[in-house]
Design a binder for these strands. Sequence first.
DNA 1: TGAGCATCTGTTTTT
DNA 2: CAGATGCTCA
Length: 824
Amino acid sequence: MTTLFDPDSPPTNQASAVPIILDSSGQLLGDDASLLDGLNPQQRIAVEYRGPALLIIAGAGSGKTSVLTRRVASLIDSREAWPSQILAITFTNKAAAEMRERVQALLGQGANGMWISTFHSSCVRILRREAEKAGLGANFSIYDSSDTRVTLKRIIKGLDADSLGFTPANASAKISKLKNELADADSYARNANMSDPQEVMFVEIFRQYTRRLRDASALDFDDLIGETVYLFRAFPDVAARYRRQFRHILVDEYQDTNHAQYSLIRELTRPVTAALAEDMEAQGLHVRNLQDATGAIPGASLTVVGDSDQSIYAFRGADIRNISEFERDFPGAKVVLLEQNYRSTQNILSAANAVISHNFDRKDKKLWSADGPGEKIVGYTAYSGHDEAQFVADEIEALHATGTAYRDMAVFYRTNAQTRALEEILVRAAVPYRVVGGTKFYERAEIKDALAYLIAVANPADELALRRILNTPKRGIGPTTETALLSFAEANEISYRQAMRDATALGLGPKVTGSILQFASLLDEAALKLDPENPAGVANVSEVLTFVLEQSGLLTGLRNSRDPQDEARAENIEEFIAQTKDFNRENPDGGLVDFLTQVSLVAAADDLDDESGTVSLMTLHTAKGLEYDAVFLTGVEEGLLPHQMSAGEPGGPAEERRLFYVGITRAKKRLYLSLAMTRAQFGDVNVAMPSRYLQEIPAELIEWKQSPGMANSRGGTQPRALNARRDGYGGGFNARGGGNRTDIPPGLPPAPKPKTEWANRITAQVRDNGDLTLEAGDRIRHVDFGDGRVNQVTGEGTKRIAHVQFDTSGAKKLLIKVAPIEKI
DNA sequence: TGAGCATCTGTTTTT
DNA sequence: CAGATGCTCA
């Protein structure tokens, strides 16, 4: 596509070898001065140091993004590198976009040609470009974890492997782990104990999985990295081209890289032999000014940034040794330590330091701030998850009232399941919020269906996509027909798609045969629209989408359905159409494959919208790299943080502690730690204990609004009476030992349980006060807060909000439509 | 073929 | 509790 390199007079290669501060012309100093503005001495070194390898140990909030962007800007500004010679790897696409923006702002000019992206995006870009050598079509599909699961499920079923204890989940975890170590089925088989039937079976599963993906011309997330490494290893000339191109490689969040990613970086930073350099020169790829005395091209200069205290992705294969042994890996590497924190108050940092110091086996590092102690950390022990949520909602409102914008607040939790209680209460309390990640837009069934149509058009070999939409919308092709097609394809060694075109030969009923043929030609017709030879011109993404939706009747089917949920699904699809139009506008040259790539690689944190005036809810993992004025860290309980599942794993509790540490250090001014004494899980209510990590925070840093002790003491204050109802577990918490959730407080009738009472449904759908109108002066009764007086009503239509002064529970905001209230 | 109902099972974090 | 699976019946 584009040239890999600015052909005219590439700058010198000296950058990677000679530590310079000043260019001979002296120009650097002048321009760089502004780039160094406001940096502390360590940060300056991190920006200015030049050499083959630099490790920046950047504590939380130590301004590493700023350092990284200035470093990139200074490389370009000083003409040590063209933008196209820089490869910067970030953790999320959002971080990449932000970095690009900031570099551009610093340079005041286009920094086009820089590769700033995630590992995965960079690899896709390389693999699509080199598809032929990699043995793939340039239109290869990218399988996400659910695609992997579906594929494995079929394999396991076919092999009857579930009897040996295999599930899609555990098989995919194991395969992923191996791929992160750059192992494949064959290399694994060589070392496996093949007298163990389970091992034999696993090898077979792995083999079939690999085969299916290859047949479908698909790669999973792990393959994207691994295949790129294999590509470089198998084709030294290809590797040489990229080594020649990327003279400066920067990797953020290095502590979370796994072995495959590490290997990729190693491949990219190797020198190019004199012979290969000459080959390139002969092909017109200029190398003269990159060569050293021997004619070789020295390895690219590598900068990595990380903090081993924030390593939280071991479960994904992240190897903390990549960073802890960096100096051994890259002898002569310069190490810079950034410890001064510009984000949080000292109280927050002291808590963070205290917690993390309980991890042994780490280099001691103490974050400090020049900004003073700040507010104390607020602790709260709730009676239940709902009570905790109510505390969060109340505090959010209080902060909002005193001037903190909603967008500057965030609520963190360990597991996605915890959002339920939080959402329910936040909706009722009319707090504008947004769940970051979680069930993502693209994971919705109807969107996956629409996507599968696009994938089937782009990559005819992708059997998975094809089978997903074979009978969506219903066209009378059931499982029987599906398998018939499958065995027909296998018997004749043709693709599934081709089998569909040849459906007449299957001898099925005329009706079914007709639908198959019609479906097949629908897809073929759509594919024709993308053919560059097509005289009508190549269709863009939204045109293709509109075409398949219309022809298949997917959207109209949903619109005409009488299932009320289908209305929302239709809206989602319309939203999806709108997104493809946006994509067309923003990427006039972008084709269908580009769109699908983008969709496959969006991360949870990517869709964070800074402009939105809403509170952000997210997992602790998603929170990495972000910061907020006020942070609510919820569910600080044994079993949740640290999570039960981590207990058995080596290094588990230490990693959970780092997770807690990451959460704490996101907070700039205020930090709230909350826990619940009982938590509803899987329909059960369990008694929870305060997290061990709480005790690691010096007591004087926390001000408990309700301490674990207070909440335990019998008849303790109950400032939030949420536990009063809800099928009984309210008064029952005193009965320790757990499990007795059916305790009915004496005096209450044996709960006839009205059907709308089932709590954990998004309230907006269950409870509906309809046309209930309230005005100032009305008295109301609330299920949890008791009686109160309406002071004011604001908002319109379904978003009307009552501001209520309760007799015993204080002032609250309530979303009238969904709040559990009645007029009295 | 597919809709509707009963049972069972899993229960972390994510590119 | 939610999602998946398996069963029966139209």
